[in-house]
Design a protein around this nucleic acid. Structure first.
Lengths: 353, 353
DNA sequence: TTTAGCACTCATTGAGCCTGAGTGCTAACC
DNA sequence: GGTTAGCACTCAGGCTCAATGAGTGCTAAA
């Protein structure tokens, strides 16, 4: 039986139960529904309807003499069909816009900062990950003097990503020499993917640099590190403390177990796995998630693309009783803004090539 | 009465009680002490000693028929005089050394990463903060091309700190033009403190850059942002979830309150305040800390210096029952390594000027 | 000075009971 | 046929109360 085949009244009752349960975290009784929904029928009628809704699998009962709580299927129907749109309020808009306008132009950081913001707005913990794709190439390598023995190594990638590192030299390096070395490095390594720097190239460089070949060591190390972090992106967890605000995490032992589980980067990546390849927003509710550990949780995930390539993901984690309406509203508002920003960025990049 | 005026036996008993309590988080009884310490006296004797220790203020009793727990004063004596050194084990050494050798040369990051490591090793949450002092000057400003409309702005400070930002231009900027602009910027702003860039300098630059003066906007913005973050350093909290592993945080409401308190950056800075100006390691136990919120907690703080200037702080947060012996051992081992590394860095910087 | 022994205290635990919220069902009503 | 009032029933949560046992202080003897 599809949700839309139900009577208007049943759907109203189901929505009311879900929203009430989301608010209170307590099983919802027939009396409360009769009073609050204004359907003009008695609690007995509601009881009959509720019994049917349970039989059809939209609701569950923790024990005989308790009220009803939504099943995963109930939440799913709510999220997909019943829920009304949440209007993001002034202050949420303001915070989001201020964030987007600040244009923290390093992509890595924009995503992790965005995770914090989302966690702040929603009141649930968030996960965020930047996935830099293999397509990006070395654009430039520059060594800039700090003092005569120290220099900053700067690696610029074709998509504008920048890595820098402070290095010390065995020999004094005057700035014009550094500039020369930078040119040699850039000429040899430009347009190479990070993971494809060849032995041949290295040998050439070693030859070209002569007694200054020691600068190759940090250069290659940075390249290796960036390549590795590209393949094993770190997923950042923020606002974990907010979990405690949810009554479902009042069981200390379980909560600790759950937080332990979230400590591990590999686990975090698996939390995000259902959204892989899905553009836009993905939601998993309760058991829908492949991970056992998340059977009592829901995850709202957003995948961000730049010119067809995935560049990052943000997710919000909450109990299945999460406030889908509000959180989705906030998430969508943010996602739209960010995507517009990314779009602009992409177009400007595009038009200039 | 000073702790060292006590009899050898009393001190042994006090140590044993503290260590037992640190392990179990349960009040310690006379029988347990009689059995485990091997003093060869009966529990009755221990009882007499314990009663005296309590009278002198080293111990407390939660209620008449319970065992004893250490007072703040007791912990203090333990930390200052009684505690034996903890020998850092192989694996802890290995992790610490690997970390230090990786030489994450950006100071900002070394401190925050260090916070994570310390939290991992100790099992308690950690705070970390980089305090860049006002002494540092602009060393160089470089604009590097990404494509014809985009460039990376790189700000290098005299202490090797680097900030970068991806910028878009209104006009195409060929690379030799960018190089020229970089030279103009660097010549005009070099050796200026971030907070002291003058209106005069800006006017000069504006004049010199002509129609390309739009690049000034991002440059000045980055300078402003870095200046602000210098004065209001962010204190980073890591491993907050580990608090839950401590039985003293089994009271959900109090724990949530505590975590809320730690959400605020200003509070975090106040947590670190007792270590300000103190080189080396500072410990506050229970009520010793000026903050009311920390009356049941202890804080171990380390201040890191480079050439006489404070450059960062790391702290571990735990219940007063924290395992001082182990944590201090780990903290000291790490601090020594980091200080040696910083020392080297400083010397090399020094010798080259 | 140490110890054995005893009376006492009190947090913790579990059993038993009560209460109230909520249900399902039935019979009457519209 | 749908709706409702009413009633018997269920069960989680909160309460009291007694039993348990870990631990203490004190005293008298070694």
């Amino acid at each position: 039986m599809e949700i839309m085949d139900l009577s208007e009244r049943k759907r109203k009752i189901l929505s009311a139960i879900i929203e009430n349960y989301i608010d209170t975290a307590e099983p919802v009784g027939s009396k409360a529904i009769a009073q609050t929904t204004g359907l003009g029928v008695s609690s007995a009628t509601i009881r009959n309807e509720m019994a049917e809704l349970e039989e059809m699998g939209w609701l569950e009962q923790p024990h005989t003499s308790a009220g009803r709580i939504p099943s995963s299927r109930g939440y799913r129907a709510y999220v997909d069909y019943l829920m009304q749109r949440y209007r993001v309020n002034e202050s949420e808009m303001a915070r989001t816009n201020a964030f987007l306008q600040s244009r923290i132009a390093e992509l890595e950081r924009i995503i992790t900062e965005a995770g914090k913001l989302i966690s702040d707005l929603s009141g649930y913990p968030s996960l965020s990950m930047t996935s830099r794709l293999h397509g990006t190439l070395i654009e430039r390598i520059e060594l800039m003097p700090v003092d005569s023995y120290q220099f900053v190594l700067i690696l610029v990638m074709s998509d504008g990503m920048v890595k820098n590192r402070l290095c010390r030299a065995r020999l004094p390096l005057p700035s014009d020499l550094l500039r020369e070395i930078s040119d040699v490095l850039t000429r040899n390594l430009r347009a190479t993917a990070l993971s494809e720097v060849s032995v041949h190239q290295i040998a050439l460089l070693q030859h070209a640099l002569g007694e200054y070949d020691f600068v190759l060591q940090p250069v290659l190390q940075v390249i290796r590190e960036v390549a590795i972090s590209t393949e094993n992106p770190e997923v950042i967890l923020g606002g974990e403390g907010r979990l405690l605000e949810q009554p479902e995490f009042h069981d200390l032992d379980k909560t600790r177990e759950f937080l332990d589980f979230l400590q591990d980067n590999e686990s975090r990546r698996q939390v995000l796995s259902p959204a892989e390849g899905h553009e836009g927003i993905t939601i998993t509710i309760g058991q829908e998630h492949p991970l056992q550990e998340l059977r009592d949780s829901s995850v709202i995930m957003g995948n961000y693309m730049l010119g067809g390539r995935p560049i990052g993901m943000i997710a919000i984690l909450g109990p299945t009783r999460m406030n889908y309406r509000r959180v989705l509203g906030q998430f969508e508002y943010f996602t739209n803004g960010l995507n517009k920003l990314l779009q602009e960025l992409f177009e400007s990049q595009d038009s200039s090539e």
